[in-house]
Amino acid sequence: MAGMDGFGVQLQRGDGAEPEVFAKIADVTSLNPPGLSRETIDVTSHDSPNGWMEFLGGLKDPGEVSADINYQPAEHDLLVADFDDKTPRNYKIVFPDDDVSPTTWTFGAFLTGFEPETPYDDKASASLTFKVTGKPTITAGA
């Protein structure tokens, strides 16, 4: 079977304790995992074979995570403390690919955006943006 249904994906927040316990961030409606990217270093010279440009792999950027939530102050305002904190917090994305042993992405990140919205004719919502720092740990599911 090809593909995976995204329904049931979870964004979890670590408590910073040892051992760390992760709790689900409630009411996530949309989640975009880190967009990994890599810089390249141009090492082309007059000696490059057949006039083709040559590159080396440069630094890797772990990207950002974005999430939209159904905003509930009692559930979500604790994230404002993450915004105030200069120390990254651990977060985890749990994919719904296996009930027993799901794939997870664990990463340190800073909350860089918390944008609530409360229109008079629709649900209260918020957009969250996290800047990932360091290499994410990807654990493949069963």
Rank of each mutant, 00 (worst) to 15 (best):
F107K: 03
K92G: 06
A81I: 03
A109S: 06
D82Y: 01
D98S: 12
V100H: 12
A109C: 06
G63K: 09
D122G: 11
V132S: 08
G57D: 15
Y71V: 06
T118C: 13
S48F: 04
G108A: 14
L78P: 10
T112N: 12
Y71W: 10
D98L: 13
P102I: 04
P96G: 10
T112A: 06
T133C: 08
A67G: 00
P96A: 09
K131T: 07
N90R: 15
T129R: 03
T103Q: 06
P62C: 12
D85S: 10
F95T: 00
A124P: 00
F130S: 04
W52T: 07
F55T: 11
P119E: 10
P116C: 10
D77R: 13
K123I: 06
K131R: 13
K86R: 15
D99F: 13
D61Y: 02
L78W: 14
D121K: 15
L78A: 15
A81E: 04
N70Y: 01
G51L: 03
I93E: 04
W105Q: 07
D97I: 06
L78F: 14
E117N: 11
T104S: 11
T112W: 09
W52C: 07
D97T: 11
K123D: 13
L59E: 11
E64M: 03
F95A: 06
E115F: 07
Q72M: 10
P88F: 05
R89A: 11
A109V: 01
V65T: 00
E75D: 13
L111C: 06
S101L: 11
N90K: 07
F55D: 03
K60T: 14
A81H: 09
I69Y: 08
V100D: 11
K135T: 12
Y71Q: 03
M53R: 14
K86P: 08
F95Q: 04
L79A: 05
T106M: 12
V100Y: 11
I69R: 05
N50G: 01
A81T: 09
T106A: 13
T104E: 09
P49M: 12
I69S: 00
E64Q: 15
S101P: 04
Y120Q: 13
S66H: 10
E54T: 09
D84C: 12
I69L: 07
M53P: 00
Y91F: 14
E64G: 03
M53L: 14
F114C: 04
L78M: 12
F114E: 06
V80Y: 08
T104G: 02
G58A: 08
L79R: 05
D97S: 08
S66E: 05
S48G: 03
G63Q: 08
I93S: 01
I69E: 02
S48M: 05
Q72V: 12
G113P: 00
K131F: 01
F55W: 15
D68Y: 05
K92Q: 14
D82G: 05
L111Q: 01
K135Q: 15
